[in-house]
Computed example of a mutant assay.
Amino acid sequence: MSPPALPGSNPYGAVPGTGYGTGEPVADRPPLPGPLPGYPLRPVPSARRAGPEAPYAAPEQLACQLCGGSPAAEMAIRHHQGLVLFMLFRKRKGHFCRTCGTALLRKHTALTLWQGWWHPLSALLFNPVTLLLNWRVHSKIEQLPGPGPDPFASRLAPGKPLFLRPGALFGLLPAAFVAYVLAMVVAG
């Protein structure tokens, strides 16, 4: 057991005004070596320099968090399950390239199409809203160019188109029934 620290002392061993725990002043040390070959130093951002001439004015290009492909976009792909007694809401948020985003969107939208209609509030409100939000993500994915080569083979396979999947086709039956009931209510 160590003795208690005195008031005003540093319990971690560093002396103020010196380097980390060495006791020698910072000015007496030899300068640090230059950058390593192939790794140039980047300019340090300054609070005094703001505006378009700042060194970090241009945003860096996003990379897909699943495969590392670039370019990618930030998006949230939703999945809704309407069960008889309760509902489940799921969201996969992140940076995805065109290929991985398409694969995730097809999977979660197909699941939403056949699992989302089985609660009254889900059928009338939450499932259609989830499908509309996923449709908006689809338009964002379509604007992305292809991600380029996949050297590590970690990219998701897009699979079948949405309406060639059996779950999505089965999900159109409850959707048609809900549309029919709403049309009957409106018609009188």
Rank of each mutant, 00 (worst) to 15 (best):
V129L: 15
L164G: 06
R136G: 02
A168T: 07
P145Q: 07
A168D: 05
A176M: 07
P145W: 03
G159C: 00
K160A: 09
P149V: 09
N127F: 09
F126D: 05
Y180T: 13
F152P: 07
T130R: 04
V181K: 08
L131H: 01
R165K: 08
R155T: 11
L156K: 09
G167M: 09
V137C: 04
L164I: 00
F126Y: 15
L173K: 05
P145M: 00
P151Y: 11
F170K: 08
A179N: 00
P166I: 05
A157M: 01
A176C: 10
I141T: 00
P147E: 06
H138C: 06
F126V: 08
T130I: 07
F152Q: 14
L133Y: 04
P174A: 05
L144A: 02
L133C: 01
P149A: 14
E142R: 12
A153P: 08
F126S: 07
P147L: 06
G171P: 04
F170D: 03
P161S: 04
V137R: 01
L173W: 10
F177M: 03
G171H: 01
N127C: 15
E142P: 02
W135T: 03
S139V: 07
W135I: 09
L162T: 09
A179S: 09
L172G: 01
Q143V: 10
L156R: 12
D150Y: 00
P174F: 06
L162Y: 07
P161E: 03
K160E: 00
W135E: 11
P161R: 00
V137S: 04
L169E: 02
G146C: 02
R136H: 04
F163Y: 12
L125Y: 14
A157P: 01
